[in-house]
Design a protein around this nucleic acid. Structure first.
Length: 705
DNA sequence: ATCGTCATTTGT
DNA sequence: CAAATGACGATC
C-alpha cells in the first residue's frame, strides 16, 4: 500500500527552546486514516516517547536524515486547528516563548471517555435583529451592524454606570452568532462568568459554554470539545478561553481588562488581552476591550487607530451617573463624631448613608482588602515616590523585621521613625484579621534607624527625595488598609441589616431594600435598582501601592463599585480630592484618565508606550543569556534590581530566592518583535548548551514597578 | 534519555 | 598507530 502523503510533520511537546521546531515522521499505513493534521500523536524522539501534534501531511520530507515512524495516533480528534496553530505561533513569538508552552495553555488534557460520548444536538433560538440598548452609545447601532455583517469592527467600550453589562455582552455574542460566526467573551472570574453565561443562554440557548480553570477534567474537556466540534458557538471564560477553538470566530471580547487575572502566571506569561488582539487581527474577528474604566493599554489601542471608542455621549452619561464627591482629609480630621473618625468617614457621608437607608435604599461600603504592598509615597500629596533615574518605585530596603506600625521617613535627617498618620484608624481596630499595617522599620524593628530608600528597578539609593508633584521632602510608608469592621457600622446604623461580601464569601447579588453591604474591593454585589449610596473607604490605600498601575487600578475599582449606584444616587470616595484620579472619578471620565495615564507612560517609558522584557535569574544566568545574542539597536539595559515583592521565583531550586535578581530590557514599541526574536535566539543558544540554571523571561510583565 | 561524531588520551 | 575514552550536539 502506497500512501499519498506518507510524511507527518509533527510538533513534539518538548521543554527546551531549541527544540521548538517541526520534525518529520513516517506514517505507517495502518495509521494513514487517523493521522490527520491536528491530531495528538506519540513519537519516538531520541529514544524517549513524547507527545506531539501533527501539523500537516506531506508527500515528501525535507529532512535528509533518518525518519522514524509515528509511534501512535492518540485519537482521531483534530484538536489543533490551523487557526490555533497560527495564534499559538504568534503568541510564542510575541512573548519569546515556545509553542509547546503556549499549546499547554491552549489545549486541555484529553479525557478519552468524554471524547467517545455522543454529543447532544443544540437548537439555536431566534436571535433579535436589533438590540436597542446599544443605541445609547454613539455608533452603538452601527457597531452591531458591522459585527453582524462580519466586517470585524474593533472597539474600546466604556459601559455607563448602571449598565447591565453582562446582558450587553451577551447581545454582542448573539449578534455574532446571528451573523453565522462564533464568539468568545472573557471575564476575570467565575462570578462574572456565571452572570454572562446566564445572559448568553437567554439569547443563544445551549450554544453557550463556560470555560474556566475550576472545572474538572471531564467537564472541561467536554465543553471544550463542544466548542471544537462547533456545537457551541459562544464561549464565556476566564483567560485561557482566549484560545478556545471557536469555529470561525467573529467576536472576541475582554471585559474589565485591567484585572490582573488576565495575566498568565505560567510561561510564556502572556496577557489575554494581547492574545485576543493577535487572534482578532489574524482572523478578522471583531474585538471589544471593555469595562467601566479604561486601561492605558486600551487607550493605546484607540490612539493607534486599531480600535475605536464605543462610548455614550456626555449628556447620556451624565443622566446615568450618580453624584460623586470626594470629601477631603480635613473634613474627616475635623469630624467630631468619634465613630465617624474611627471608620474614617466624614459626617456628610454618614448623613448620605442615613438618608438612603431612611428612604428604604441599600448602601454599599467598599473597603480595601488586606495584602496591599507597602511602598513609599509623598507624605503630603501621596503621590507614589519614584526613582529620579529610571522612574522605578522607591522602597525601603527589606532588611529588618516588619513592624505593625506606620512609619514616617524624613529625609532631612534620613531617619525612620514610627509615627502616626492623620487618617489612621488601623491601630485602634481589633488585631487579628484587621489592620495588618506592615512597614519595614530597620533591624529588629527599632524605630530610629538610618536608612534611605532605593529604587526597586535600578537599585540606586535615593538620598534626598523630593516629590515631583508637590515638592515635599517627606516620605511616608503607605500601609495596608484592611477589612473594616462591619460591627462599627452596625453601631452607627442600629436596626439595619449589615451584610458582608468578600474573601471566601462573595455575594453574587443582594435583594433590594434598606441594608448596608460591606464589600471588599471586587466583591461588590449588584442590587436590583441600584444602591442609593456608595461609600468608598480608604481610597489612599489603593493609590499608594508600589505599582505602576496604582491610580488606574484604583479608578477601575472605584468605578466598578460606583456603577452599582442608581442614576441620581450618591457616591463618596475617601481620597484626596485634588488628585487627578479622584477628579476622574468625580467627573466620570475614564477616557480622560486613560489618556493621561498613557501620556505619563510615554513620558517615563513604561508599557504600553514601550516594550519591556524582564529577565529574572542569577547574575550568571542573566549575563549568559545577554551574551548569547545581539540585542536590537537602541535597547536600554536597566538593573540589576531585586524582584518585585511577592513575585514568584518558579525556579527548580537551583538558586536561593535571595540570589535571584532582575534585569530590564527596554525598547521602542516598533522594536518589540525584534527584542523577542533576539531573546528567542538567546534562549535557543542557552538551551542547546544544556544550561538550565534559573532564568525566566517575561515580556511586559504586569508586576513591573 | 540515547546515539553518533570527533577529538583526545592511553596502551602498545 | 590503534583502541579506549570523553565531550558535544542532535534528536525527524
Amino acid at each position: 500500500m502506497r500512501l499519498d502523503k506518507p510524511i507527518a510533520r509533527v510538533l513534539p511537546l518538548l521543554e527546551p527552546a531549541h527544540l521548538d521546531r517541526d520534525f518529520d515522521y513516517a506514517v505507517p499505513p495502518e495509521m494513514d486514516e487517523l493521522a490527520q493534521p491536528g491530531v495528538r500523536v506519540r513519537v519516538r524522539f531520541s529514544g524517549r516517547l513524547v507527545d506531539g501534534y501533527i501539523l500537516e501531511r506531506l508527500t515528501r520530507s525535507t529532512h535528509s536524515g533518518k525518519i522514524m515512524p509515528l509511534q501512535r495516533v492518540v485519537s482521531g480528534e483534530r484538536v489543533l486547528t490551523p487557526e490555533i496553530v497560527r495564534v499559538v505561533s504568534a503568541v510564542a513569538a510575541r512573548y519569546a516563548g515556545t509553542r509547546a508552552d503556549v499549546l499547554r495553555l491552549a489545549i486541555p488534557p484529553r479525557h478519552a471517555r468524554t471524547e467517545a460520548a455522543e454529543p447532544k444536538p443544540v437548537v439555536l433560538p431566534d436571535i433579535p435583529e436589533k438590540f436597542p440598548e446599544w443605541d445609547r452609545y454613539v455608533h452603538g447601532g452601527s457597531f452591531l451592524s458591522a459585527l453582524r455583517r462580519g466586517s470585524g469592527p474593533r472597539a474600546a467600550w466604556q459601559a455607563m454606570p448602571g449598565e447591565d453589562w453582562a446582558r450587553r455582552l451577551a447581545e454582542l455574542a448573539a449578534t455574532a452568532v446571528a451573523g453565522g460566526r462564533g464568539a468568545i467573551i472573557m471575564v476575570p472570574d467565575q462570578r462574572d462568568l456565571d452572570r454572562v453565561a446566564a445572559e448568553c443562554a437567554v439569547l443563544v440557548g445551549d450554544s453557550v459554554v463556560g470555560l474556566s480553570a475550576g472545572l474538572g477534567p471531564a467537564a472541561r474537556y467536554r465543553r471544550w470539545l463542544a466548542v471544537l466540534r462547533g456545537t457551541a458557538r459562544v464561549v464565556v471564560g476566564t483567560r485561557s478561553a482566549v484560545f478556545a477553538p471557536v469555529r470561525d470566530p467573529g467576536l472576541i471580547v475582554v471585559w474589565d481588562d485591567g484585572d490582573d487575572t488576565y495575566a498568565e502566571p505560567r510561561a510564556p506569561y502572556s496577557h489575554a488581552r494581547e492574545v485576543a488582539m493577535l487572534r482578532a487581527h489574524d482572523t478578522g474577528a471583531a474585538f471589544v476591550v471593555s469595562g467601566f474604566a479604561r486601561t492605558a493599554e486600551a487607550q493605546a489601542i484607540v490612539e493607534s487607530g486599531w480600535a475605536h471608542d464605543l462610548i455614550a455621549d456626555r449628556a447620556t452619561l451624565r443622566a446615568a451617573t450618580a453624584h460623586i464627591h470626594a470629601p477631603g482629609d480635613s473634613d474627616i480630621a475635623l469630624e467630631r463624631d468619634p465613630l465617624a473618625r474611627a471608620i474614617r468617614i466624614p459626617g456628610t457621608a454618614f448623613a448620605a448613608a442615613r438618608r438612603a437607608l431612611a428612604a428604604g435604599e441599600p448602601v454599599l461600603v467598599q473597603v480595601p482588602r488586606r495584602g496591599y504592598v507597602p511602598a513609599l509615597a509623598c507624605a503630603k500629596c501621596r503621590t507614589p515616590a519614584r526613582c529620579r533615574h529610571c522612574n522605578g518605585p522607591l522602597a525601603l530596603p527589606e532588611t529588618g523585621s516588619w513592624g505593625r506600625r506606620d512609619a514616617k521617613v524624613d529625609h532631612g535627617s534620613r531617619h525612620v521613625s514610627a509615627g502616626g498618620r492623620s487618617l489612621d484608624a488601623n491601630d485602634r481596630t481589633p488585631s487579628g484579621r484587621d489592620g495588618a499595617a506592615a512597614v519595614p522599620l530597620g533591624s529588629r524593628g527599632s524605630a530610629d534607624v538610618a536608612v534611605s530608600p532605593s529604587c526597586r528597578w535600578c537599585g540606586k539609593v535615593e538620598p534626598a527625595f523630593r516629590c515631583g508633584t508637590c515638592g515635599s521632602r517627606v516620605l511616608r510608608a503607605v500601609v495596608i488598609g484592611a477589612q473594616r469592621t462591619a460591627e462599627e457600622l452596625g453601631r452607627a446604623f442600629p436596626g439595619v441589616p449589615i451584610r458582608g461580601s468578600g474573601g471566601a464569601a462573595v455575594l453574587d447579588s443582594v435583594p433590594s431594600g434598606p441594608q448596608v453591604v460591606v464589600a471588599t474591593i471586587g466583591a461588590e454585589p449588584p442590587v436590583p435598582g441600584g444602591y442609593g449610596v456608595a461609600l468608598l473607604l480608604d481610597g489612599w490605600a489603593l493609590l499608594g501601592r508600589a505599582d505602576l498601575r496604582a491610580a488606574e487600578d484604583a479608578l477601575r475599582r472605584w468605578m466598578s463599585a460606583a456603577a452599582l449606584v442608581r442614576a441620581a444616587g450618591e457616591v463618596l470616595v475617601m481620597a484626596e480630592p485634588s488628585l487627578p484620579v479622584v477628579q476622574a472619578l468625580v467627573r466620570w471620565d475614564p477616557i480622560g484618565h486613560a489618556r493621561h495615564e498613557l501620556a505619563a507612560r510615554v513620558e517615563v517609558r513604561f508599557p504600553p508606550a514601550v516594550r519591556l522584557a524582564a529577565l529574572d535569574g542569577t547574575t550568571a544566568t542573566i549575563s549568559e543569556l545577554l551574551n548569547a545574542t545581539v540585542l536590537p539597536d537602541g535597547v536600554e539595559v536597566l538593573g540589576p534590581v531585586p524582584l518585585p515583592p511577592g513575585a514568584r521565583t518558579p525556579f527548580s531550586g537551583d538558586a536561593a530566592p535571595a540570589e535571584v535578581e532582575r534585569m530590564i530590557l527596554r525598547v521602542d514599541r516598533h522594536e518589540g518583535s525584534a527584542l523577542s526574536r533576539a531573546l528567542v535566539a538567546a534562549l535557543t543558544v542557552r538551551s542547546s548548551h544544556r544550561s538550565d540554571g534559573p532564568l525566566r523571561v517575561q515580556i511586559d510583565p504586569v508586576d513591573i514597578g
